Simulated assay, not measured.
Amino acid sequence: MNDLILHHYASSPFSEKVRLILGFKKLPWRSVMIPPILPKPDVVALTGGYRKTPVLQVGADVYCDTALICDVLEHLRPEPTLYPPHLKGVCRIFAQWADTTLFWAAMGYNLQPKGAQHVFAKAPPEAAKAFAEDRKAMSANMTRLRPGDATSAYRSYLRRIANMADEHDFLFGAEPCVADFAAYHGIWYTRTQVPVLADILNATPAVGEWMNRMEALGHGQMTTFDSTAALEVAKAVDPLPPSGKLLVDSAFQDDHGIALGEQVTITAEAFGPEPTQGKLIAATRTHYSIEREHELTGVVHVHFPRIGYVLRKADAA
């Protein structure tokens, strides 16, 4: 069961990042549409608590966070690469900045009152309130930029990206790499989801031209799939054995004094404070993996990147 099942929703910026990578790599995938806010019973059944979007499912293995999903897709289809050998370090560092600092500046600008009003213009008033309360709960552990500060930062970041796009077709050369996909999705939200605020892009036409080239990559070969069927896929198979994992590193790296086999929780450092609990089955230089079981999924392995996540013994959580 090696079908790629992406649990996402249409307006999710990080989902757009992964959708474009699937198109870039020409990987066929199944699309499961999920709610943008809680409750998300089927997602939580798969992950055990993690509820950020998107989530990638491959059989009974569940991959959380787009940084880790990028590594999985790179392993499945190494060419075209997300990590050119001569840029491997710098493109990862840039992507980490873009997925955090750039993204939150963009969203602080995008969801200022005028933008939020546009997003929810056709929705009942309670929908906007529910979304705001949901995101407030998810950002309890972080400081969010106010709209004015976000706007100032976003303008500066757009100019810097324009400088890069002036030099090449893509940010680091003639072909896109992980840096392009990480930088794109927050700006994509500006252009496609809050067009009433998209005039901020007018001062940097090179950014718009770069975005056109990114958009042209498309989303690849997508087929719709049902959430219940996705859970049945997980229940019908066993998780991949260590030798068959879609994550290449396997050596145990103990920085916490927590042995494999112990019950642990894994929680995002900032956005999305919901913990996931299970038996620790891997702690490598790049990722954590836990084993857990749910009546709807059977035994699943849930994987997280090491950077950006906190590992604790379950009794110390």
Rank of each mutant, 00 (worst) to 15 (best):
S11V: 15
P13F: 08
F14Q: 03
S15C: 05
V18W: 07
R19W: 07
L20Y: 04
L22Q: 03
K26L: 06
V32P: 11
L38S: 12
P41C: 04
D42N: 12
L46I: 04
L46Y: 05
G48P: 04
K52I: 01
Q57I: 07
A60L: 02
D61V: 05
V62K: 03
I69E: 00
P78D: 02
T81Q: 05
H86F: 13
H86P: 07
L87F: 04
L87M: 04
R92M: 15
R92E: 11
F94W: 08
F94C: 12
F94S: 04
A95L: 05
F103G: 14
F103E: 03
A105P: 00
M107D: 04
M107P: 02
Y109E: 12
Q112I: 12
A123H: 10
A123E: 12
A132M: 06
E133L: 15
A137I: 07
S139L: 11
T143E: 13
T151C: 13
Y154M: 11
I161M: 14
I161L: 15
D169W: 00
D169E: 06
F170E: 00
G173K: 08
G173E: 08
A174D: 15
E175W: 13
A182G: 00
A182I: 05
I187D: 05
R191I: 03
T192F: 03
T192A: 04
V194H: 06
L197A: 05
A198C: 06
A206S: 06
V207P: 01
N212E: 13
G218M: 11
H219G: 09
S227I: 02
S227A: 12
A230G: 09
D238T: 06
L240A: 15
L240M: 07
S243R: 10
K245N: 10
L246I: 06
G257N: 10
L260G: 03
Q263E: 14
T267A: 11
A268E: 13
A270W: 06
P273C: 12
T276R: 03
G278W: 03
G278R: 10
T284W: 12
E291L: 12
E293L: 13
E295R: 06
T297P: 00
T297L: 10
V299T: 15
V300T: 09
R306T: 15
I307Y: 03
L311Q: 08
R312V: 05
